[in-house]
Design a protein around this nucleic acid. Sequence first.
DNA 1: GAGGAATGGTTAAGCGCTAAACCTTCGGCC
DNA 2: GGCCGAAGGTTTAGCGCTTAACCATTCCTC
Lengths: 346, 346
Amino acid sequence: MHLTLKDIAAEAGVSAATVSNVINGNRARVSADTRDRILRIVERRGYVPSAPARSLAARSSRIIGLLVPAADQDSLTLSPHTAGIIGMLERELRRHDYHLLLRGIARPAEVTEVLRSWNLDGAVLLGFLDAEIDRLKRRSVGDVALVAMDAYADNPLTLGVRSDDREGGRLAARHLLGLGHRRIAFAGPASSATGVVRRRYEGFRLAFAETGTAWDEDLRLTVDTTHASGREAGLRLAAEHPDATAVFATADVLAIGLMEGLAAAGRTVPGDVSVVGYDDIDIARYVAPKLTTVAQDLQAKSAAAVRLLLDRLAGGAPPDAAVTLDVRLMLRGTTAPPRTPEPTSR
Amino acid sequence: MHLTLKDIAAEAGVSAATVSNVINGNRARVSADTRDRILRIVERRGYVPSAPARSLAARSSRIIGLLVPAADQDSLTLSPHTAGIIGMLERELRRHDYHLLLRGIARPAEVTEVLRSWNLDGAVLLGFLDAEIDRLKRRSVGDVALVAMDAYADNPLTLGVRSDDREGGRLAARHLLGLGHRRIAFAGPASSATGVVRRRYEGFRLAFAETGTAWDEDLRLTVDTTHASGREAGLRLAAEHPDATAVFATADVLAIGLMEGLAAAGRTVPGDVSVVGYDDIDIARYVAPKLTTVAQDLQAKSAAAVRLLLDRLAGGAPPDAAVTLDVRLMLRGTTAPPRTPEPTSR
DNA sequence: GAGGAATGGTTAAGCGCTAAACCTTCGGCC
DNA sequence: GGCCGAAGGTTTAGCGCTTAACCATTCCTC
């Protein structure tokens, strides 16, 4: 048999309610004396309250779901970026005495099921497409707090946290333009699906507009966010756009694939082609030369997500509050001025 | 108000118990008719049972904890290897209708607290030292099933899953010996702490013994499992053991750090020094040259852990059952015969 | 010295579910 | 035709906790 509230109450010679009040530090009328006595007993006996029971009685589970898309029978593929976020989210939640339930989502309906089933206080949506987030709107979700990371949906029921993707794209392009590059390729997934890519693309174009430089749509490479796809794109870039002297990729894995493809095509980095990535994952520092990339502060991002979530639960933040975090460019080894400075136009 | 069992029961004109029996597919005496009617109502109304309530009433939460060491206020640092395991564990658990609670553990006592608090059916211990696992023995853990991954503790209360580390070390060394290397360094953390490293080391030595080759203890480099530490070790190796023509590292990140250190010291890989890693993380294929490494089947490992866990819960597996999985050597670009074949002794 | 507010609790109802024990009805069997 | 067992349920008693409502003292205040 388990050690329960009642056992503690009996030993302390008080009612269960009092023990409950003490444990929850309630706005409770309990003498310091009684409180101490109870706490000592709890400590000595190693009493741990039953979370399911609390969950049931208090209608709050103190669990936050971490929901990640997963093809039906497939395992979650946690990118280094995602893995970093998960680790930091867990820390933040633990600090606030919340727990983290990790769950792959195959069908949209599962979101509601998980929320309801576990009585989740909230959930973090990681890696969903904007449209998927929007679709959640229809389902009644009660008053769980939802925070979508890296999405630009306008679901009025979800909080949002993302880094300043537009600025990230802009920084990358300005850097390359500043070095003297003009033929700069943009490699990333089709931006129709994800607002993140679209913002990065917009920022990229903005930098051209700001410096009055023309940009050729041909240099937009549509590529998956994978190493293999990046490598292929590198080969393609070398073959089809021999005049391109730089490329900005919307993810580091992609950038690293690009570097490999370029190398395979006999182009050197940054000698022949400069490369800028995005995310600043660990690997960016493991490749040679080290990858110049746009860094996000994962720590801040996770903290912001949790803060937003808890604020919302406390009735603070409005249901569609959003936070945008700063990014910065990590200058490393894969960018350099173009080998043969192009004749400055006009 | 929530939709509850009672609501369904009322609508179906039966008692709550019957609905419960239907939902749980119990050894229940329910007519096919009633069953169908109930299921249809459940479906139509979108009823989802409350997990905390079930947990409380059935004394089983259907949650498996994933416990990972975490320095007190620190976030979990999920290595690519760990991240891979997590993703696959989640999938396996989801298939069996279990849930995954991710929790960083700062103090040993937290293990028991989490287990008790959430009424966990079981837990996977990931990344703990053997001694820490052993210490769990003292705490009464009730009848949760514990499975330790990659540990060689002899706690009679924990299940175990690991890959064949001894064979991994042996494969690596045989490969290098077979190529003609004789001065082969071993780089890894002090093996006193973790049985995994000790097994890999034993296998490594075994290969020497089997081929009747002597090995010089000086070539044992004690290094942390990090990229930075690996880089340092690479520099040290080049400086202090200029005659070493190969090195086996107990982890890929370490191996990649080594490659960087060696390069910084002016040694080429595999020209001057061959390198073999361990784990076959994605990055192993992103570096140039691609890393020769010992691969574990993470998929199989995760599946084995879950199988063991559920078997144990069903009363099947003995409380200290263990599974050891095969490993294999991925031959890639970082190993080659030594440049100047050493004069074959005798 | 009586009324009101603190102070320090207690009681009781219930959160949503499960599971063991119990109750009917009915058909079959000798 | 009386008894048995199976089929198809229902009743009941919690699981361990929270929370609102209630009660009894004590302490001021005028």
